[in-house]
Design a protein around this nucleic acid. Structure first.
Length: 418
DNA sequence: TCTGGGGTCCTAGGACCC
DNA sequence: TCTGGGGTCCTAGGACCC
């Protein structure tokens, strides 16, 4: 933990094109070529008799997959993560397409994080390919080197990069600043294989010219709204009075926008956290109808419940709130959930609760996605805590007491096992 | 030829309790 | 009997992130 009275220095480390780079270690002959990772049913490379490999091309893909990652040569064609593969194929038809191998990425993720921990152990996990690191209390960080007041700090950041490279063969980009918000922006300023160290004095020159969307927490909606208000850069945002922003974005978000634009962020590096929910979902190859495709949906529903139950058991959690997620052909998304009396990790119980949720949905439109979620988690090994739970009233499955949930007229749905 | 799968956090209204 | 304020639980939706 950071001790008070000394300068706080936080690093954000982001692996460069992580999934794609892991694949390039495996298939070095693809280095320098446009490569896209994505799609569930993308073809595995074919081993030819002469020992070489034949790779699937983006142009041969058909389906609903999206780009998970693209190499920098592929990005040069305008391909980026989240883009539909069919659209990416128009931009770069000759790019190589590889299926995602998440087990391999998770293994490499553990390796790079262990390499960082050898140098700097105070780490916050932010997913498979990025972390925050609190450098404040490491030896040498607060010391100048030669004429450079931040020389010790820079040396530690460089040592982290070297260690990651040595352990994995992969490059990363690091931003080092007084807080998480600025470090996240900074790690992106010299990508790939970059190291960017900023102080608050650098804010006007290095941060303010950037578009507001570079702030972690300003997404498509807030970005568009700011644009409509004539605010494109972080500097333009910083010129606005807090009251002006609060009027237009609400008390909480408006205040946060003001602080973010001024580089203010006191959030600590959090080294441990418990999961809030565990879920599984799937998008179908074609849209399915609740009645006409009942058998198929029922089988998928059962499988999702089983997967969620397996995940809960493997990780050692029980859930008290079971929910479903549906996406219709028009891309509208609805969720329903239900708090059950007994916390569970049992596939049959989960499926039953999720089935009750289904009855509260209108199935006029066809479905493109189905998901099951388990929330209100507790540790399976913890003593059952009934203390915080009010006694259930009325029927076994009520929502708020006395608040019967609306249900649709009975339809032969897929809420019973196939 | 549109738009994956896994998450977190916030807001908001109604019920209920004190 | 009416009014009412604070706090918590439950549910639904949405923004955002990796």
């Amino acid at each position: 933990m950071h001790s008070p009275g000394r300068a706080r220095w936080i690093a954000h480390l982001d692996m460069d094109a992580f999934y794609a780079s892991v694949e390039l270690l495996r298939y070095p002959e693809l280095r320098g070529r446009p490569v896209v990772i994505g799609g569930r049913r993308a073809h595995q490379p074919e081993e030819l008799p002469d020992g070489s490999r034949r790779f699937a091309r983006l142009r041969d893909y058909a389906g609903r997959g999206v780009v998970t990652t693209a190499t920098y040569p592929a990005r040069a064609y305008g391909v980026h993560s989240g883009m539909g593969l069919m659209k990416a194929a128009q931009l770069a038809p000759d790019a190589v397409l590889l299926p995602a191998d998440f087990d391999a990425y998770r293994r490499m993720s553990r390796q790079f994080k262990a390499a960082v921990a050898e140098v700097a152990p105070v780490i916050e996990d932010r997913g498979i390919d990025e972390i925050y690191i609190d450098l404040s209390d490491l030896p040498g960080v607060q010391d100048p080197v030669g004429h450079d007041p931040l020389g010790g700090l820079r040396a530690v950041a460089q040592e982290i990069r070297n260690n990651v490279r040595a352990a994995t063969g992969l490059t990363c980009s690091i931003g080092v600043t007084p807080n998480k918000l600025l470090s996240k922006i900074a790690s992106d300023l010299d990508k790939p294989d970059g190291l960017t160290l900023l102080t608050l004095d650098d804010l006007p020159a290095r941060i303010w010219p950037l578009p507001v969307r570079r702030i972690n927490g300003i997404g498509p909606k807030a970005g568009a709204k700011l644009e409509a208000l004539g605010i494109r850069s972080i500097g333009e945002l910083a010129q606005r009075e807090p009251a002006w922003l609060i009027e237009r974005f609400g008390r909480s978000y408006g205040q946060w926008l003001y602080e973010a634009s001024h580089g203010i962020d006191e959030r600590p590096v959090v080294t441990h956290s418990e999961p809030v929910s565990i879920s599984r979902e799937t998008t179908f190859e074609r849209d399915l109808h609740a009645v006409r495709d009942r058998a198929q949906l029922s089988a998928i529903f059962t499988r999702l419940a089983q997967q969620v139950a397996d995940d809960l058991q493997r990780k050692g959690y029980l859930s008290r709130t079971i929910g479903i997620k549906l996406r219709f052909e028009d891309f509208r998304t609805v969720t329903r959930d239900l708090t059950v009396d007994q916390p569970t990790a049992d596939a049959v119980q989960i499926r039953r609760a999720a089935g009750l949720c289904l009855k509260r949905v209108d199935f006029t439109r066809r479905l493109r996605l189905l998901g099951i979620r388990a929330g209100s988690l507790s540790r399976a090994d913890a003593p059952a805590s009934t203390a915080t739970r009010r006694p259930a009233r009325g029927k076994a499955a009520t929502a708020a007491p006395g608040n019967p949930l609306p249900t649709q007229p009975e339809l032969p749905l897929f809420d019973t096992p196939a």
